[in-house]
Design a protein around this nucleic acid. Structure first.
Length: 234
DNA sequence: GCGACAG
DNA sequence: ATCTTGTCGC
């Protein structure tokens, strides 16, 4: 049902070692993709009393935001939730789902941070480095860094800074008067373009359509796997 | 020692 | 993340 995968880290030390090994593959030059025709959203859903997880990816036309491809997989959590090592928990199902896509997206919008991370290597960096695709981190909450409150209107934003004043990302208001999201670079894209894409993909709600649809699909897949065939009724 | 801590 | 439907409010 699924291709073999590399030995997955079991301990914090192993995960940090794997992180260091992947670091050289990330492109933080600021260069951005020339053409973005499709944007993908990825998310993982979890069950309550089990280790069951579901990963989903939904690809949207960058102009119409209409779905053009999608894939979902169900599996078992391979790593606990550890702030700073979140990628090792979500990567397995997400990489599996990406492999099942019939198309290759031009940009990845990830549900978590990119370089706005303790070691500047969040989930979006892992996904970008491993797939070679430009990636952006879109998180609902802060992990590291400080920032002023962005303006109240859609599009208003403030820099997310580390203790040295280095820019880690951007706190972006995607809807008037609604709590902002945290955008940070993952791989092969600049911060400004990254934020522009997040805004473009969020025409009506706080979160990008990519994230919303992937969230819905992952929950559906998890529920279907938990309740039998997935077909309604009996 | 006391908080903070993506999902 | 998840437990959870309808409901009050802009």
């Amino acid at each position: 049902m699924r291709g073999d995968r590399e030995a997955w880290p079991t301990t914090v030390d192993q995960a940090e070692a794997a992180e260091r090994a992947l670091r050289p593959l990330v492109d933080l030059s600021g260069r951005s993709p020339a053409r973005v025709r499709t944007v993908a959203g990825l998310d993982v859903a979890y069950a309550t009393g089990s280790e069951r997880v579901a990963g989903a990816v939904v690809v949207l036309d960058a102009t119409t935001l209409r779905p053009v491809d999608e894939a979902a997989v169900v599996g078992t959590a391979a790593f606990p939730y550890v702030p700073g090592l979140f990628a090792f928990r979500e990567l397995p199902p997400l990489l599996d789902a990406l492999e099942r896509l019939t198309t290759t997206p031009d940009l990845l919008l990830c549900d978590g941070h990119g370089i706005a991370h303790p070691r500047r290597f969040g989930l979006a960096c892992h996904l970008g480095a491993r797939t070679g695709l430009p990636s952006v981190g879109v998180a609902k909450n802060r992990l590291v860094g400080d920032h002023e409150a962005p303006g109240p209107r859609r599009g208003d934003h403030a820099d997310l800074l580390d203790a040295d004043g280095t820019t880690l990302g951007r706190v972006l208001r995607t809807q008037d008067g609604i709590r902002p999201v945290h955008v940070s670079v993952g791989h092969a894209i600049g911060l400004a373009p990254a934020a522009e894409w997040v805004l473009r993909c969020s025409p009506r709600f706080r979160l990008p359509e990519t994230t919303r649809l992937a969230d819905q699909l992952s929950r559906r897949a998890l529920r279907a796997a938990t309740s039998g065939t997935g077909v309604s009724g009996w």
